[in-house]
Write a protein that binds this DNA or RNA. Sequence first.
DNA 1: ACAGCGATGACAGTGACTGACATAAAGGTG
DNA 2: CACCTTTATGTCAGTCACTGTCATCGCTGT
Lengths: 191, 191
Amino acid sequence: MVRWEPGARERLQEAALDLYATKGFEETTVVEIAQAAGLTERTFFRYFADKREVIFAGQELFQKAFIDGVAGAPKDATPLETVASAVISAADFFGDDRRAYSRQRSTVISATPELQERELLKMAALATAIAAALDERGVTEPAATLSAESGVTVFRLAFGQWIAPGSTRSLIDLEREIFAELGALSAPTKS
Amino acid sequence: MVRWEPGARERLQEAALDLYATKGFEETTVVEIAQAAGLTERTFFRYFADKREVIFAGQELFQKAFIDGVAGAPKDATPLETVASAVISAADFFGDDRRAYSRQRSTVISATPELQERELLKMAALATAIAAALDERGVTEPAATLSAESGVTVFRLAFGQWIAPGSTRSLIDLEREIFAELGALSAPTKS
DNA sequence: ACAGCGATGACAGTGACTGACATAAAGGTG
DNA sequence: CACCTTTATGTCAGTCACTGTCATCGCTGT
């Protein structure tokens, strides 16, 4: 096996993120991305459904980790405990090495409503998949959806703190902390 | 005051929903919507930022009801109770008279990923606004966001049941029921 | 009558995205 | 090695969402 040459897909992804970060999403044309990758516009659209999707490709493994985490949770766990265990186990995907990349990517998304919409759609799909996995385990609605959505929200909050400037704690720690707060929400009023 | 003539904005909204429902969103062009309303494409874009937005215009009052509901909740309520009270009070917006319309609108949205994205963005904005209102009341993060997101999720689930075919119960009832399930989620494991 | 103003139309332009077809490189089969 | 098939890419034309600019039309107050 010779040295790894990045394929067209990888070159397009890198060029796109780079241009979105430097010029801005709207100011970047697909033609520019394609040229930067040494390809044509038409080829771009053979790899990615649209201009937004190039930022979100390759999250299937990460989403699969969530689902597997649900399936692998202890059988006697409550729905929320199940989701917590899945969310925490999926955090392995985000080690310190990915922090800088995640930061750049999130900065671009935060700056672009169009990309935020797409991210919300991905998260909604993730929540739906988690709810379905809970269903497999016998959790009924609406508990399944409620737990799944809560878990995704915790993940998003933890992820936001994880990539915050100056943050140095691990994603797992942050998730655990926020899950604890979630549990405290339904606690009786302190009197 | 003479008889009410629907203005350009209303005609566009009605024509758009009608066409989206009958022909489908992607198959409908903005020119068609404008023609159906007796206007031109250019005028459409003077009233709505894009082809999706025409379906979502006029939700400001409804979102305002949520925020006011948060501000008007009893001072000794927990964050989750506060949000529940807000969500429940905002349900007044959806009486039985709006059910048929809401159904048609939701059917169109469910059939169109592009519209789902926009709806998710609106819901995310609503959750952010609710969290900010909680902040005003002294609720700290991440409890504020967690509560707000939970409340919005409950609303979405209840709304989904409210417009389900054959459904006849009131939105408020459905919301109460699902909030109860949410509270039960963090209950100790039944042993 | 006229000046100003708000709503609309007309028109040209950009850029995302698609379908159809051509081409070229890579690999297997006789 | 000639041949065929597959796969990746380029080319081109076309549609449609969306924008900037300028013209026009009708109303309103003076």
